[in-house]
């Protein structure tokens, strides 16, 4: 499980996370919601290990201290970040990228590498399940992809890598309703007793398709409210104003 205590992060001296606590038990899906500038993307970046932040506090995944690890080592212990803005890698084949990634993580666990043939047959199953064209695999990573295609590609990667902890950073932003359904289906498929998911979103609509076990409201760099699904409805009705009274997460 993921356990965050008193997490602070600042960038160029500007404090963004200001003592954030959060527990995400194995097998649960939690949502983090909050207005623009609340620190949602910073939270995912800091957990995944992006450079450029001054960080203190603790964040452990199954007891391993994430904040001490290089980004690739965090990936190896099972952290996956679905990027809000997935990067384009011109000339790098999607299948090649994904297989290299899968094998890097398998190697870190002392497992055998997956052969190209085995990889392709598994990848095709996931593509079918996610309603994606197999041609996805032969394109360059995200190059020339539409916004929706990029997000679906993130979900494909997440499905193949089978992470312990998946963080989805505003994966729903900019999606039409069909793409949103596919993304939601991808998340639902991955729900399982050994997996935790943190769905970061600005809008409640994704939460109608993916019912989170718990919703955290992030504002001013801290969790200011936490609760069940009713919070989403409250937000839908009243917005983020009036949620600033801190309660224990």
């Amino acid at each position: 499980m993921l356990r965050i205590r008193d997490l602070h992060a600042s960038i160029d001296g500007k404090a963004i996370l200001t003592g954030l606590d959060l527990d995400l038990p194995a097998g649960e899906v939690h949502a983090v919601m909050g207005p623009n500038g609340a620190g949602k993307s910073t939270l995912s970046n800091v957990l995944a290990g992006r450079d450029g932040y001054e960080v203190r506090g603790t964040a452990t995944l199954d007891g391993a201290d994430l904040l001490d690890l290089e980004p690739e080592a965090r990936a190896a212990v099972g952290l996956f970040l679905a990027f809000q803005y997935p990067m384009e890698l011109p000339g790098v084949g999607n299948a090649y990228f994904l297989r290299t990634s899968l094998n890097a993580i398998r190697r870190a666990h002392g497992q055998d590498e997956v052969s190209a043939t085995d990889f392709l047959s598994v990848a095709r199953e996931h593509l079918t399940a996610l309603d994606m064209d197999p041609a996805f695999l032969s394109r360059s990573v995200n190059e020339g992809f539409s916004g929706g295609e990029k997000k679906r590609n993130e979900i494909l990667q997440m499905s193949m890598l089978e992470p312990r902890l998946a963080i989805l950073d505003e994966t729903d932003s900019g999606l039409d309703i069909d793409a949103l359904r596919i993304v939601a289906r991808g998340i639902e498929r991955l729900r399982g007793p050994d997996r935790s998911m943190l769905v970061i979103t600005h809008y409640p609509r994704l939460l109608e398709l993916v019912r989170p076990d718990r919703i955290h409201v992030l504002d001013g760099g801290r969790i200011v409210r936490a609760g069940g699904h009713e919070l989403a409805h409250e937000l839908e009705a009243d917005g983020y104003a009036g949620m600033t009274d801190p309660v224990p997460a």
Partner: peptide, 21 residues
């Protein structure tokens, strides 16, 4: 960072991006 988040170390990531180029 995108590549490293997917488990590749910096050398592998650079090599992959260069090979793509």
């Amino acid at each position: 960072f995108y590549c490293r988040q997917r488990g590749l170390d910096e050398e592998d990531a650079t090599s992959m991006i260069v090979n793509g180029f």
